[in-house]
């Protein structure tokens, strides 16, 4: 799956880190880093994290399959 965190919005509440520690991590007290394309098996965890984010900074892929494969 694919996600992106709008780190301008993010205020480092770390709610996502509690819920999906393999996907989201803090570097120091406040700087969030994350795995942008986590394994699909983590979808539920990541959805929990996105729902919990107080400033709704986590964007999740809303497309299942189909258009994903880009051709030139």
């Amino acid at each position: 799956m694919r996600i992106v965190v709008d780190l301008n919005r993010c205020q480092g509440y770390a709610q996502c880190v509690f819920l999906a520690p393999e996907v989201f991590q803090l570097s120091g007290a406040e700087a969030l880093t994350y795995e942008p394309n986590p394994d699909d098996a983590r979808r539920l965890q990541v959805q929990r994290a996105a729902a919990a984010c107080p400033v709704q900074a986590i964007l999740i892929d809303r497309l299942n399959g189909a258009e994903r494969s880009v051709t030139s």
Binding site: M1, R2, I3, V4, E35, P36, N37, L59, I60, D61, R62, L63, A66, E67, R68
Partner: peptide
């Protein structure tokens, strides 16, 4: 290659 941007809708 794990940096692909999420797609927010069909294009």
């Amino acid at each position: 290659d794990h940096t692909k941007l999420p797609r927010l809708r069909e294009l």
